[in-house]
């Protein structure tokens, strides 16, 4: 089965500082994969490479078998992204934001309007289509960003720390929305976070620490292998062991 996202031996450095060191993992279609790491672990660098902001110095990145450097058009069609920074145009209405995004994928305004209404209804924001983006709460903006990222019907969705700055309820709603999409649309999701409580037992977890992928397993498998009480404990053990190895 072609993976939704395949990262193979990816390394990247900014000058002498190594941000990613031989990272490999896959996100299968219809799965929720958590990229877990502290701030500065290399999550944003990895997102920049997948979204082709710049090219990886070493290694390959494929989206549904399309290499992001060699076939960027085909790869990016399959990709929806929610960036860490808020990227809605605050001066425009919610629907105008969606229509603009659709145009960037070659979808005309009438079709964009139709898809936008359906996407907003799914996100529980059908009545906010003509409000300025500025008028939305943080959680609502995130939901619009997810609706927008899915407008061109990609099969892979990347989210870079989407719950940062949200309250508990908004976080839970957002997580439920995305998990629902994985179920309904068989979407492959890569969810970057440093928040342990966003991980479910059956999620695939990639622990990224100081640019290295230390573990790539189901959450419950990592917990069992580490003999830990929970995934938070397991994370501490995995990263602690790596640091001991480094200092030895």
């Amino acid at each position: 089965m072609t993976p939704a996202l395949a990262i193979r031996n990816v390394s990247h450095a900014y000058g002498a500082r190594k941000a990613l060191d031989d990272v490999s993992f896959c996100v299968p279609p219809g799965s929720f994969t958590v990229l877990l790491g502290l701030n500065g672990a290399g999550k944003s660098t990895l997102f920049s490479l997948i979204t082709r902001l710049y090219a990886a110095r070493h290694g390959e990145i494929d989206i549904f078998g399309h290499n992001v450097m060699r076939a960027p058009g085909a790869a990016l069609r399959e990709l929806g992204v929610v960036f860490q920074a808020r990227t809605l145009d605050l001066e425009l209405t919610v629907m105008q934001n969606l229509i603009y995004h659709a145009a960037l994928h070659g979808i005309g305004p009438i079709e964009a309007h139709r898809r936008g209404q359906a996407a907003l209804a799914r996100a529980g924001l059908a009545d906010r289509a003509h409000d300025k983006a500025r008028a939305l709460s943080g959680g609502q903006m995130r939901r619009v960003e997810i609706a927008r990222a899915l407008l061109h019907e990609p099969r892979l969705l990347l989210l870079d720390e989407p719950t940062v700055g949200l309250d508990i309820k908004a976080r839970a709603d957002l997580l439920a929305l995305v998990r629902g999409l994985v179920q309904e649309k068989s979407l492959g999701v890569l969810w970057a976070t440093h928040l342990i409580d966003e991980i479910a037992d059956d999620d695939q977890v990639v622990i990224l620490h100081q640019g290295k992928a230390l573990a790539t397993e189901r959450a419950k498998t990592i917990v069992t292998e580490q003999g830990a009480a929970n995934i938070g404990d397991a994370f501490t053990r995995v990263t602690g062991a790596a640091e001991e190895k480094l200092s030895a």
Partner: peptide, 15 residues
């Protein structure tokens, strides 16, 4: 670019 809007433009599949 700092706020991310430029990135939404650059992830478009157009050349």
């Amino acid at each position: 670019r700092e706020m991310g809007n430029m990135r939404t433009l650059l992830v478009s599949p157009f050349p």
